[in-house]
Design a protein around this nucleic acid. Structure first.
Lengths: 135, 135
DNA sequence: ATAAGAGTGAGTATCATTCTCATTCTGTCG
DNA sequence: CGACAGAATGAGAATGATACTCACTCTTAT
């Protein structure tokens, strides 16, 4: 983990990555598309998703899925993970990654070239714990 | 993590959980629905998803999303995580969870009641590494 | 037996993502 | 300079998983 771009990025891929870095928060494909609409950097939804997939395959971008099914993207350089409420879906970032480079033995890895990981915790936020008691 | 059912499970919830345990592997909502079709335990797709969500909210079931967007469910008692190829989507289980009960400080947890976590590693499997070289 | 409430499911709606394919761009070669 | 090949693009349609609706069917208690 921590590969530098070995291949040249296409201009639009660079734009997308830059948007993700500048945003300072995770964005969905739809978010990125909306954010760029009207600017000279605008691009179609198909292109957004196409390049996001390619960025992922180069290990530059990570994605995680909300319980809603929506996918959120972030640069892998930002090693941030989350705590998500299984009831209301609210998400809060963790301030530190509890595993950093987790200890995976070579036989566990079995030839894979590691690009990134996702680590997500799920539970009930304090509000929803209260609401469950009432139910 | 490791709550016992504090509330009585509905019969169909119990069936779903049992199917997941018996299957010994992760199943999607569609899988579960298909598996039960034709048996006396059959239930509609809506019911499958409804109960899977409730089982998740009780911390009995965990779900993770494949890059394809499909959600796979497993009992939380099975602490299994994966290595997934961002190219072909192939997944292989890890034989041990590298974090067990990760060290989360109380202020990081911020009132959440932890139910389960997902930890997924992504990379390129050996086949796809080869294929990229050719491209 | 009856009524209230929970549980159910067939069909429909939703919505993010992917696919299709015609068009545009870019660089190269004649 | 003009034409061509291949890559890149995007509008719109297709896909497919999941959520919603609402009428129906069970329970259970009285």
């Amino acid at each position: 983990m921590g590969e530098q771009p070995s291949i040249e990025l296409l201009p639009k891929q660079h734009q997308l990555l830059e948007q993700l870095v500048l945003a300072g928060q995770e964005l969905s494909g739809q978010d990125l598309h909306a954010r760029l609409r009207g600017t000279p950097l605008a691009m179609g939804l198909a292109t957004v998703y196409r390049h996001l997939r390619q960025l992922q395959q180069q290990g530059l971008v990570r994605c995680r899925h909300l319980p809603s099914g929506e996918a959120l993207f972030a640069p892998t350089e930002r090693d941030e993970h989350h705590l998500t409420c299984v009831d209301c879906g609210r998400t809060q970032p963790l301030t530190a990654c509890p595993i950093h480079d987790a200890h995976l033995s070579p036989e566990q890895i079995g030839g894979f070239q590691l690009l990134f990981h996702t680590l997500e915790f799920f539970g009930l936020c304090s509000d929803c714990q209260g609401r469950q008691d009432q139910d």
